[in-house]
Design a protein around this nucleic acid. Structure first.
Length: 586
RNA sequence: CGGAGCUUGGCGCAGCCCGGUAGCGCGUCUGGUUUGGGACCAGAAGGCCACAGGUUCGAAUCCUGUAGCUCCGACCA
């Protein structure tokens, strides 16, 4: 009997303690009436104003209690979906021995991005965790029977970004959910990759974020396949080409569109030199000499691994450096300097072309120019151009490839839908790594035939803070944030209006607070001694799904008002119907 | 790393050009009046004007340097 009593007292005490906690009078929730001077983008402004975060330095943030509650919600969604695909959660150290990074050559590859510890040689702050994961795999994965594995963690990453921006969108310290798949065959990798693909879709859907997936350039990470989960936003740093139905979506780094090749014209006259003394740009050339812009080929000289290469493009097209980089398989590229132009071609910018080059440098051309004739291009002699060029006949083109950047309004190759070129925030990235790290660190297993094989790996990341920033970018109005059930820091904002002459207001508020909490709702109870304007504006700014307003006007009729933050709708209901109402409408 | 701007009580800003050791709004504290959409009255606390050096009788203000922050660009597994 005594025991039961103790248990009852214990739970009562626990509930009481909990009820004391989320009273706004003492809850640390500093809201700002004015827009902080440093914030530019909506999500950053609202996160500061609604008391989610505070900035410590460029790209360094503290998460305040309300913000941390949201962060925890996101992390729990991540955990739940990753556990669903068999993920096992780790916590790996941010402090890493540099040897591991030297083994994979990434000290150099990361360069300035990696933080180095100054007063302790040999330690760095990890910007990602492929090395550590591979280290553990090497230690303990010995047999094909140990595979597959999916290992993940949610942990702080450190990157010395040259330019942090957009608040939490690009930080120097940030939370990342990073997972890694370990497989004993390539089909296994495909499977692990697909599992992550589906988990990511489930995660972003659960969070209520509108997103799209693009194929991405695998860059210098040495992988096979890679996709990015993107959110359209003016604050984004990536540029993507998408159709409205998302039937097509790609990073402009790889995007293509339905543009007809330049093709051939009937007359096929001999190549002819002509003077163009004042035409320095394609537009001037077109204007001064009445040339069809589609018949102009512009030449761009790049130094690829310090070797000059001439790229021929349609006059009005723009070269895409990422396509260039992946075509040549190097990150070491740059436009040639003015001096290098003269040395290699014999002319200054504006008069360069594929024919009559001073030094025989390699010439590549965009696919659209394949087979074209009747073209105009620089003559590698200042102030002169050639006309009637037949690229097949007159120029030596080593290879035709896709080098151009797609333009807003062009059509999708497959569906013919119009492409929009939009800015986007990268929320997640999934990546088939292959064996780059397992080979470098000798993480091998014995296959069925007893042969040593490198583990086949994938890596998968989600920027946790970005999830919140993206959500807010998509869910706000002039008054503040609009939370959904999945991410909201509290379910209900219980607002007790000032009422000196009506003790029932306080009484009912307390009663509802206890009742809602004991029914499993997280309640933020605004028991502050503030004017209603302050309370309502703060509530809208913080943006919990429901505001329950307890005021003298209505409690005397045993009623309260409920405001739906998203729709703005207010309902007057009987106090006794509150739980029913919430359960039906939440 | 290139370009632009900023740094003055907790927050948002004025003062700087034309030197004379700081002011406004919000917030905070005390008392009072108010209370269904950021109240009002009275009083108060709080700043060596980013830092260092220089010019000057005297510097928030002029000059030089440094740092931090923001934006644009470059960069971004």
């Amino acid at each position: 009997m005594n025991l039961y009593l103790n248990i009852i007292i214990y739970y009562f005490y626990r509930l009481l303690k909990r009820l004391l906690k989320m009273r706004q009078d003492k809850y640390f929730l500093p809201t700002l009436k004015e827009t902080p001077n440093d914030a530019v983008i909506t999500s950053h402004i609202l996160m500061l104003r609604a008391g989610l975060i505070r900035q410590i330095g460029a790209g360094i943030f503290s998460w305040l209690p309300v913000g941390y509650r949201v962060l925890n919600k996101v992390m729990n969604i991540l955990r739940s979906e990753l556990n669903e695909i068999g993920g096992q959660e780790f916590l790996l150290p941010a402090l890493n021995p540099i040897e591991l990074w030297e083994a994979t050559n990434r000290v150099e590859a990361m360069g300035e991005v990696m933080f180095h510890i100054k007063n302790r040689d040999g330690l760095v702050l990890a910007p990602t965790h492929e090395e550590i994961i591979t280290f553990h795999a090497k230690q303990h994965i010995n047999s094909y029977k140990d595979l597959p594995q999916i290992w993940y963690q949610i942990q702080n990453k450190f990157r010395n970004e040259p330019r942090p921006k957009g608040g939490v969108l690009r930080g120097r310290q940030f939370l990342m959910k990073d997972s890694y798949s370990l497989d004993n065959c390539w089909e296994g990798l495909d499977d692990s990759y697909q599992k992550h693909f589906e988990a990511y879709i489930a995660i972003f859907n659960s969070c209520g974020i509108k997103f799209f997936v693009v194929g991405a350039s695998s860059g210098a990470m040495g992988g096979k396949q890679s996709q990015e989960f993107m959110v359209e936003s003016e604050a984004g740093e990536d540029t993507c080409a998408i159709t409205d139905s998302f039937s097509y979506s790609a990073n402009v780094e790889v995007a293509t569109s339905n543009v007809s090749p330049v093709g051939r014209i009937e007359s096929n006259d001999e190549i002819e030199l002509f003077a163009t003394p004042k035409a320095k740009t394609i537009n001037e050339l077109v204007e001064m000499h009445q040339i069809d812009i589609n018949r102009c080929a512009k030449s761009v000289v790049y130094m690829i691994d310090e070797k000059p290469v001439l790229i021929l493009m349609r006059g009005n097209d723009e070269l895409n450096e990422t396509k260039l980089s992946s075509f040549f398989g190097t990150n070491n590229y740059r436009p040639a300097t003015g001096e290098e132009l003269i040395i290699n071609t014999g002319a200054n910018g504006g008069s360069i072309g594929p024919i009559n080059l001073k030094i025989k440098i390699e010439v590549y051309a965009d696919m659209l120019l394949n087979g074209a004739n009747g073209m105009v291009s620089g003559a590698n002699q200042d102030g002169y151009h050639y006309r009637n060029i037949d690229l097949g006949r007159d120029a030596e083109i080593k290879e035709f490839a896709d080098f151009r950047t797609v333009i807003d309004g062009e059509l999708d190759v497959k569906t013919g839908e119009a492409l929009r070129v939009v800015k986007a925030i990268e929320l997640g990235h999934i990546f088939k790594l292959g064996t780059k790290y397992s080979e470098a660190l000798n993480a091998e297993f014995l296959d069925k035939d007893g042969k040593r094989q490198p583990i086949i790996m994938g890596s998968y990341g989600i920027g946790v803070e970005r999830v919140i920033a993206c959500y807010i970018e998509q869910n706000n109005d002039n008054s503040g944030i609009i939370w959904n059930k999945a991410l909201t820091p509290f379910d209900i904002h219980l607002i007790e209006l000032p009422a000196k002459n009506e003790p029932k207001v306080k009484e009912i508020s307390e009663k509802l607070y206890a009742e809602l909490e004991s029914n499993g709702f997280d309640v933020l109870y605004d028991d502050r001694d503030e004017r209603i304007g302050v309370k309502f504006n703060d509530a809208d700014l913080i943006g919990l799904p429901f505001q329950i307003v307890v005021g003298a006007k209505n409690v005397i009729n045993n009623q309260i008002e409920i405001k739906n933050r998203r729709t703005g709708q207010r309902d007057l209901i009987d106090i006794d119907n509150l739980l029913k109402y919430i359960n039906e409408n939440y």
